[in-house]
Every structure is written in C-alpha cells, then in structure tokens.
Amino acid sequence: MAERRHADLVAETTRSNAATSALAASWRRSLVKHGLDPADTRDPARVSGDDLARRRERMEPFLSVADPQLDQLYNLVGLSGCNVLLTDAQGVVLAQRVSDGDAGQFREWGLWQGADWSESAQGTNGIGTCLADGRPVTIHRDEHFHTRNIGMSCMDAPIWGPDGGLIAALDVSSARADQTERYNRLIAAQVAQTARAIETTFFRASFPDARIIVAQQDDADAAMLLAVDKDDLAIGATRAARRLLGLEREGAFRPRPAADLLGRGDDQAGGFERAERAAVTRALARADGNMSAAARALGIGRATLYRRMAKLGIGDK
C-alpha cells in the first residue's frame, strides 16, 4: 500500500505545474523524459563483467587516486551501516566499500559493482540525479522515484575531471531504517569533502610537471586550482577555476599568462624588462648573491650580468 501511495504521489507531483523544486524536476524527467514507471520493482540493470572491466581499465589512473580516499570515507561511515560507492560519469558503479554484514542488503537493492544507477535507468536517486544536475544531492527514502528504492538514503557529490568535464559520482548509501535527515546532512558534508579531495589529488596528478596555484575563492565547496607551466602559462584548470576565471567550461584551452588570469598582469609596456629583472633577481637569490654562479645560471658572462643589473637598477641603494 505504501508503495502504491508513493507511485501516486510521484505521478501527481509531476503533473502539477506548481511543483518547481529540484526534486519535482527530477521526478518529471524520470517519468516524462525517460518513460519510467515509479511502481516498477525490477532490479537495476548491471553491465557485463567484460564491460565493467573495460570501464575500470579506462578509469584506472583515477581509481588509483580515489582508492585511499574511499578507504578513509568508509572508515568514517562504514560502522553505521553505510555503503561507499564510486561510479563513472554514466552512473555505473566501479568501486565500493561495504561491510560483510550489510553486503546482502545492498546487493539486494542493486547497490553493487556494475549496476547502472543513471537517472535514465533508475529515475531519481542519489547517483543519477547528482550526475544529471552536476551538484551534490541527498535523496532520502521516499524522495526516490522508484518505490523499490524508498527504504534507502543516498548522499552524493559529483567529481569533475582535470578537463572540466564530469568524471564520477561519489555516493554513500544507508541501509538503516532509522537514518535521520540530520545524520544525512553530516554524511553529505563528508561526501562533498572527500569528492573535493579526490578531484584535487587527481588534478595535481594530471599535471605532474606544472606548478599548482590555488585561486582566490569564496566557495569553500569547490576546488579552484590552476596548473602553470615553466613559462608561467596556465595550461590547466579545475571546473570551479574555469568558471571563476572565465575559461572554457570543458576541454583544452589556449594557454594564457597566469598573471593575467589572476589579476596580477600589467600592460605590455616594459614587459620584457620586468621579466628580465625577475629572472636576474631569481638567479641571484638562488646563487645566494654569488655573481659568478648567477651569471652561469643565466648563461651570460659576469661582466654582462653587471651591466644588466646596472640597467635594471638591481642593487641600487
């Protein structure tokens, strides 16, 4: 009876023009766009073993970065009856952490490796709706679209790749009937923090030879990082940094001077002189004031170095 009432509520809400919440929008997508039935009790579809292996192989560099963070998150929430899941951008579960005692319940629900939890397949749910909306979501019990899923709570956060595109969803699902919304909020905060940590670590690993700059940020929930090469050109940026700095939303972008992006650029007049002054000053600092060593590092003679210093006003009192 409760299942029938839930299905009726979903149908009624999606027909109402007054329902404008993000949850109602997701229910409407599930019913109208994806043609799903909230009363459908079939288990979530699972990809084949070969397909899952291929997906994991494609994501191996990312998974190797994420694994320690999944372990850490599970150590925090596992004893409270939670299952930690990591999916690809299509909502297919690639990795999980779950206790032996809770494994049976989650396997029965389909919260298992290889399962497809995209919104187009399962309707409104933590993983699928997080990926569809590109934002952290919590789907608590009867907020799920399918009646078969209303016994669970799911807290999710998206993970953005180094190219600015959506790469994964991080999920914590609870099997406890007494899970409260207040406790969900605590878990959701931890999920968001872990997702940021994975995104940041993977971004750094994707630009091993670059200097990583943390951009000025007001949004504590976003990783705003810029990868800068040896010529001080920005060659990579996280999703949040792209939005903040007005860069291309996804994909490769034209390298730009980091100083320009970060608001520290000047007009071009005298640019070479400033660059030369900076190079000489750095060489002297690295050589601890030894003129011969600084000249060798710059590839010039000692007399030339003195002349350049005099022109640039370096060392003047």
Rank of each mutant, 00 (worst) to 15 (best):
G251Y: 10
E273H: 13
S174V: 00
G265A: 15
G165R: 06
D219E: 11
V280H: 11
L247F: 13
T201H: 13
F145A: 00
R249L: 11
T200N: 05
D209R: 04
F272I: 12
L170R: 06
R196I: 11
A237L: 07
G151N: 05
D156R: 01
Q190D: 14
M155A: 14
A210H: 02
V172R: 01
Q179G: 00
A278M: 04
D260E: 15
E250N: 10
V228S: 05
A275L: 13
Q179H: 08
L284G: 12
G265L: 05
L247V: 12
V228L: 01
M152I: 03
I198S: 10
W160S: 05
G236F: 09
D260T: 11
T200C: 08
Q217T: 15
D218F: 07
D229E: 10
G164P: 01
F207K: 00
R239D: 07
F202R: 00
T194G: 02
R277F: 14
T194S: 06
G263Q: 14
I235L: 05
G271Q: 15
Y183G: 14
A197C: 03
A240E: 12
A258L: 08
A215M: 10
Q268K: 08
T201P: 04
P162V: 05
P257T: 07
T281Q: 15
A175D: 01
A192D: 12
D171Q: 09
S173K: 00
T281K: 14
G271W: 11
A157C: 02
A258N: 08
D267C: 11
A177L: 06
N149F: 00
Q268I: 14
A234K: 05
P255Y: 02
A223Q: 04
A157S: 06
S153T: 00
W160F: 12
A279P: 07
I212G: 06
A168L: 06
T200I: 11
A234W: 02
T201M: 08
D231H: 04
A241C: 15
D218T: 08
G265V: 04
D171F: 10
V214Y: 02
G161A: 07
Q216F: 11
Y183F: 12
D221R: 04
V191C: 06
L166E: 01
D218H: 07
R256N: 04
E250K: 13
Q216S: 11
F253W: 15
A252Q: 15
F272K: 09
Q179S: 03
M155V: 08
P255M: 04
A215F: 02
G151P: 05
A222R: 12
T201W: 03
L261W: 01
A237K: 00
V191D: 01
A240F: 14
M155Y: 13
A234F: 01
L166C: 10
R242S: 10
N184Q: 13
R254D: 08
A168T: 09
R239K: 07
A241F: 15
A195G: 01
D267M: 10
S153N: 00
G164H: 13
D219S: 10
L233C: 05
G263K: 12
A237W: 01
D266R: 15
G151W: 00
A227L: 12
D218V: 09
R211D: 12
A227P: 11
A175L: 02
A275N: 05
E199T: 03
L186C: 08
S153L: 00
R148G: 00
A269E: 09
L247Q: 13
D218R: 13
A278C: 06
G151S: 11
